[in-house]
Simulated assay, not measured.
Amino acid sequence: MNFPQIDPVIVEIGPLALRWYGMMYLLGFFVAYLLISHLSRLRGLPLKRDDISDLIFYAVVGVIVGGRLGYVIFYNPLHFLSHPLEIFAIWTGGMSFHGGLLGVVVAAVWFVHKKQLPLLLTGDILVMASAPGLGFGRLGNFINAELWGRTTDMPWGMIFPGAGPLPRHPSQLYQAVLEGLVLSVVLYILHRRQARAGVPLFTFVALYGLFRFIVEFFREPDAHLGLLWGGATMGQLLSLPMIAAGLIGIFWCRKKQV
């Protein structure tokens, strides 16, 4: 199956271009705003309209700073030690979800402290609001024909431009379904059932780690890293602590409120 020829640029006016990848991020932020507004009312979190905008701003800064530093530290530290100014060249690509998650955690803790809000409940709502954006982002990766999967003989294998003549797993779509759709549905059900504070947050951590660990078996490893300890990828090694932390967190939240 040949990759569908999708122009990554939606519209171009002079030097300005609106790209599908950027549009996916904008869509993710818009949906996040709506979800935070809805869930704040549903769960009784006292957030005003300006507070929601501030929370999203803090989260975006956390994603960008944490995602870039995570990529620098986890994926290519020697290169950036030799070329430190390239750390700031985020337009050239290179972001880490796991680093971005840590960045959001730091930003959210700062926001919660500043606004005197309940930490776990705010985290519950923030991860629910971010899940659709993860799915949109993976769709953007697919449209850009990047982060493709390993070679396969399955009938839905796809020949990506720049990835050689062999069909590959469309692993971006696997991640879009698991990280975006499935994760969103699970978290929303927990919120509708008024799950104990912290349970949606740690469920997100555990399930994302699990989904990412599974999809890494189908995703092409980073070329400059390849397979690491025990044949695992860097994404899998970073996901294992997430699974453990998520399960421990769920157990702790349920036990402390019995």
Score class of each variant (00 low, 15 high):
1 M>W: 01
3 F>W: 10
6 I>T: 03
9 V>L: 08
9 V>Y: 05
10 I>E: 07
11 V>I: 15
13 I>G: 00
13 I>Q: 05
20 W>V: 05
22 G>Y: 11
31 V>K: 04
32 A>S: 15
32 A>I: 07
33 Y>Q: 10
34 L>Q: 14
38 H>A: 12
40 S>G: 15
40 S>K: 08
41 R>G: 10
41 R>N: 07
42 L>T: 09
44 G>W: 07
48 K>N: 05
48 K>C: 01
50 D>V: 03
53 S>T: 06
62 G>A: 03
68 R>V: 13
71 Y>R: 00
71 Y>L: 05
71 Y>S: 04
73 I>R: 06
76 N>C: 04
77 P>S: 13
78 L>T: 13
82 S>N: 08
84 P>M: 12
88 F>M: 09
94 G>T: 01
96 S>F: 04
97 F>Q: 11
102 L>C: 11
103 G>I: 02
103 G>C: 03
105 V>W: 10
106 V>T: 07
111 F>K: 06
111 F>T: 03
112 V>H: 08
114 K>I: 03
116 Q>C: 07
117 L>Q: 02
122 T>H: 05
123 G>E: 07
124 D>F: 02
127 V>M: 02
128 M>Q: 06
130 S>W: 12
139 L>V: 15
147 L>A: 15
148 W>N: 08
150 R>F: 02
152 T>L: 07
164 G>W: 10
175 Q>A: 12
175 Q>Y: 00
175 Q>W: 00
179 E>G: 05
184 S>M: 13
188 Y>T: 10
190 L>T: 05
194 Q>M: 09
196 R>I: 11
200 P>D: 13
200 P>V: 02
203 T>W: 11
205 V>D: 01
206 A>R: 00
208 Y>V: 13
211 F>E: 01
211 F>R: 09
215 V>Q: 08
227 L>F: 15
227 L>A: 13
231 G>A: 10
233 T>G: 10
233 T>S: 14
239 S>P: 09
243 I>S: 03
244 A>G: 09
246 G>M: 00
247 L>Q: 01
248 I>M: 06
248 I>S: 01
251 F>Y: 15
251 F>V: 10
251 F>E: 02
252 W>P: 04
255 K>G: 00
257 Q>W: 09
